[in-house]
């Protein structure tokens, strides 16, 4: 119901940035060990629902954030890029763990040495695997980044 007594003013920039952070739906992109910690972050004890993020979407079209959780092999790389391309703008990427950030301990023929060779990465979360707390810190850092950034990326 419309009530003329309750009014607040803001800028469109702030409103858009705020709304983007408050329900950022990740796409399920579990690859390896980090995916288990990502699932743990979404479960009872750590509970990503507090940030409106518990809805891991199976379809990239409905997601805003891709958490690349695990090692990306050369065979998986085109699949990853395709999923990223299918996501609707605006979209963000978190490289979770050492392997997706830099290749980690596997400097060999099979792995992509850092997922930033394929997609632009916003936040790198260190650890092998990063605990749920680290992942949540990465997500909150991304929120800060969005709140401080431009709405036109």
């Amino acid at each position: 119901m419309y009530s003329p007594d309750n009014i607040f003013t803001t800028t469109i920039d702030k409103a858009v940035r705020w709304s983007r952070t408050q329900s950022m739906w990740p796409v399920t992109f579990g690859l390896a060990c980090c995916a288990i910690e990502m699932m743990a972050a979404g479960s009872a004890k750590y509970d990503l629902a507090r940030y409106g993020m518990e809805v891991f979407r199976a379809s990239p079209r409905q997601a805003d954030l891709m958490i690349v959780a695990g090692r990306v092999s050369q065979k998986m790389a085109p699949v990853l890029r395709q999923v990223y391309d299918q996501m609707a703008e605006p979209k963000w990427v978190i490289a979770m763990g050492a392997c997706s950030s830099t290749g980690g301990m596997f400097n060999n023929y099979a792995l992509v040495q850092g997922v930033d060779h394929i997609v632009p990465v916003d936040i790198y979360v260190p650890g092998c695997p990063p605990g749920p707390q680290s992942l949540m810190h990465g997500i909150l850092t991304l929120h800060d980044k969005i709140m401080a950034g431009e709405i036109n990326r």
Binding site: S73, F106, Y109
Partner: peptide, 23 residues
């Protein structure tokens, strides 16, 4: 299969026995 092939058996040839469990 093969979408998560990490080449761990090959990496294992370049790590000493003490480093092996890391891999």
């Amino acid at each position: 299969i093969g979408y998560l092939h990490t080449g761990m058996e090959k990496t294992g040839e370049e790590l000493t026995y003490l480093q092996g469990p890391t891999n």
